[in-house]
Amino acid sequence: HSHMSHTQVIELERKFSHQKYLSAPERAHLAKNLKLTETQVKIWFQNRRYKTKRKQLSSEL
Rank of each mutant, 00 (worst) to 15 (best):
K55F: 07
A28R: 11
S2P: 11
L57M: 11
E11V: 07
V41Y: 01
S58K: 11
A24F: 11
I10G: 04
S59I: 09
H3T: 07
Q40M: 05
T52Q: 14
N33V: 15
Q40Y: 05
K53S: 09
Q19E: 03
T39W: 14
L34F: 02
A31I: 02
Y50N: 12
T7S: 11
K42F: 09
Q56H: 14
L22I: 05
S58G: 13
E11M: 09
L61C: 15
S23V: 01
E26M: 05
L61D: 14
E38S: 05
L57C: 15
H29V: 13
K20Y: 05
T7V: 12
S59P: 13
K42E: 15
R49V: 03
I10V: 07
K20Q: 12
V41F: 05
S5I: 03
A24P: 10
S5Y: 05
A24M: 05
T39A: 12
Y21E: 00
E26C: 08
L61N: 14
R14C: 14
K51N: 08
S5D: 06
H3M: 10
S5C: 09
V41T: 01
H18C: 15
Q8N: 02
K53G: 09
H3E: 10
K20L: 03
V9C: 13
W44E: 01
L57W: 05
N33I: 15
N47D: 06
I10D: 08
E13N: 05
L22F: 02
Q8M: 04
W44P: 00
E13H: 04
R48A: 11
S23T: 11
L61G: 12
L12F: 01
R49L: 05
V9F: 07
L22T: 01
R54H: 13
E38F: 05
E60G: 13
R27Y: 10
Y50Q: 13
S58E: 12
W44H: 00
Q56F: 09
K51W: 13
R27P: 00
H18A: 08
Q56Y: 10
M4Y: 08
T39H: 11
R49A: 04
T37E: 04
N47H: 14
R27S: 04
E60H: 08
T52N: 12
A24W: 09
Q46F: 08
T52V: 12
T7N: 11
A31Q: 01
H1N: 08
L30A: 01
R54K: 14
S5E: 04
L30W: 00
N33R: 15
K42W: 09
T52I: 08
I10Y: 13
Q46H: 08
F16C: 07
Q56S: 14
R54N: 13
P25K: 14
L61Q: 08
A24R: 12
Y21R: 05
H6F: 08
T7W: 15
S2L: 13
Q40N: 02
H1C: 15
R54F: 08
Q40T: 05
R54P: 10
H1F: 10
S58Y: 07
E38L: 06
Q19A: 07
L22Q: 01
R48L: 05
L34R: 00
Y50M: 14
M4W: 04
L36R: 00
T7L: 13
S23L: 03
T37S: 10
Q40R: 03
L36K: 01
A28T: 06
Y50P: 03
L34A: 02
S59W: 06
K42T: 06
S23P: 03
S23C: 06
T52F: 14
K35P: 01
Q56A: 08
H18L: 11
W44A: 00
Y50C: 15
K15C: 15
K15E: 06
R14S: 07
S23R: 04
E11G: 07
Q19F: 06
K42N: 07
H29R: 15
S17N: 09
I10R: 13
R54V: 09
K15V: 15
R48N: 03
A31E: 02
K20I: 05
L22Y: 00
L36N: 00
L61E: 13
Q19G: 05
T37A: 03
H3I: 08
R48H: 06
V9L: 12
L61K: 11
S23H: 02
S17F: 15
R54G: 11
S17I: 07
N33Q: 15
L57A: 13
H29M: 13
I10K: 11
K35N: 14
E13T: 04
Y21A: 03
R48G: 03
